[in-house]
């Protein structure tokens, strides 16, 4: 299916606008639903009242200070991961690429675990994770640049090897950590929105990332057809690559710093959108951001409530929702294209 019809309907056709309105409605519904659920039952009407300004009392406190920051951060993290995944897939010319493939999360994990072992908590833990992510980004970029010309396969292999190096370090740190810290560490590694409270940072990063991505979207469409083809059609591929690399990395680093390793969103959401709507990045990017955000909010709501009062790491839920959804879509679209 394509959103560009040969009878001359353009990108901003009524169909596309309807699709976006529907998605925005769906995202808002996910956020509102997530706000109503939790250990304290608060009705939808009351939630809306509280958000609109009437935030007196205990319920107001729960919504404004606990749930709203967490839900918004969750949405932003999901959006960042989906966007980063879409960018990585184009950069590496590989539909299986995802935000963590170049070792960003590995570097973040090692630094975060080291920080935990040193007894650091709260905001400093996030900063440690961010430093680790940045270090890994620069390391892979430097190693990939050593060989001269850019080769997606070599970048990918470099990233994968560095990531597995980080993985070994993570295992080592887990093995030597005291038993009392292991639980917290595992939760961090599996991805957890418990400490994601700073949604202003996420909002700023996602907003910038989104605007830049939309500006280069037409160039990305050409880059997806091969770097040489894009260059022959007038895209400054060398510059675009660096923009995409650092954009995807910063989005991933910010997401990891807030929520640890949340798998599947960055791989599945852009892939799913490609299956459903094609690969025009002017549509793929906004749809991925909205869908990624919504999916993570749903997963986090379930993680908080499914076996309440105990909480599950949200990364487990994203996989449990994402895997069957993706397999189902893969099967149905394959059947459709065969018939």
């Amino acid at each position: 299916m394509s959103l560009l019809k040969s009878n001359g309907v353009l990108i901003l056709s009524p169909r596309v606008i309807a699709l976006f309105l529907l998605l925005i409605l769906f995202s808002s519904f996910c956020v509102l639903y997530s706000l109503t659920s939790g250990s304290v039952d608060i009705g939808l009407a009351r939630v809306v009242e509280i958000i609109l300004g009437d935030n007196e009392g205990m319920q107001g406190k729960v919504i404004m200070e606990l749930r709203l920051p967490r839900v918004l951060s969750g949405f932003l993290v999901g959006g960042m991961l989906a966007l980063a995944g879409a960018l990585m897939q184009v950069l590496l010319k590989n539909p299986l690429a995802e935000p963590y493939v170049l070792g960003v999360s590995g570097g973040a994990s090692v630094c975060a675990l080291l920080a935990m072992m040193a007894g650091i908590a709260g905001a400093w833990l996030n900063i440690a994770a961010f430093v680790g992510a940045l270090f890994s980004i620069l390391l892979v970029f430097g190693l990939a640049r050593l060989g001269g010309s850019w080769n997606p396969l070599r970048v990918l292999l470099t990233g994968i090897v560095v990531a597995s190096g980080w993985g070994a370090l993570v295992s080592f740190l887990l093995a030597v950590s005291p038993a009392t810290q292991i639980h917290g560490m595992l939760f961090w590694l599996m991805g957890d929105l418990e400490y994601a409270r700073n949604f202003k940072l996420g909002l700023a990063v996602l907003f910038c990332g989104f605007v830049i991505s939309m500006l280069i979207a037409r160039g990305l469409n050409l880059m997806a057809r091969g770097d040489n083809q894009a260059a022959a059609l007038g895209v400054s591929v060398d510059h675009l690559r660096y923009v995409v690399y650092f954009l995807a990395s910063m989005l991933t680093a910010t997401a990891v710093m807030q929520a640890g390793n949340i798998g599947f969103i960055g791989l599945i959401v852009p892939h799913l959108v490609r299956l459903l709507l094609g690969s025009d990045h002017r549509i793929l990017i906004p749809v991925s951001v909205l869908l990624g955000g919504s999916l993570l909010v749903i997963a986090d709501t379930l993680a908080r409530t499914i076996i309440a009062p105990q909480q599950l790491p949200v990364g487990v839920l994203t996989a449990m929702i994402g895997v069957p959804l993706f397999l189902f879509l893969l099967q149905t679209t394959m059947l459709k294209s065969r018939s």
Partner: peptide, 28 residues
């Protein structure tokens, strides 16, 4: 030609217009 990602015949042909269009314009 590379076709890693799903795309339609018309979308592919339209990429030939890329150099002729200004930075932010949509295909008309």
């Amino acid at each position: 030609s590379v076709d890693t990602f799903p795309t339609t015949v018309l979308e592919t042909a339209l990429t030939g217009r890329y150099p002729h269009l200004s930075f932010l314009s949509l295909e008309g």
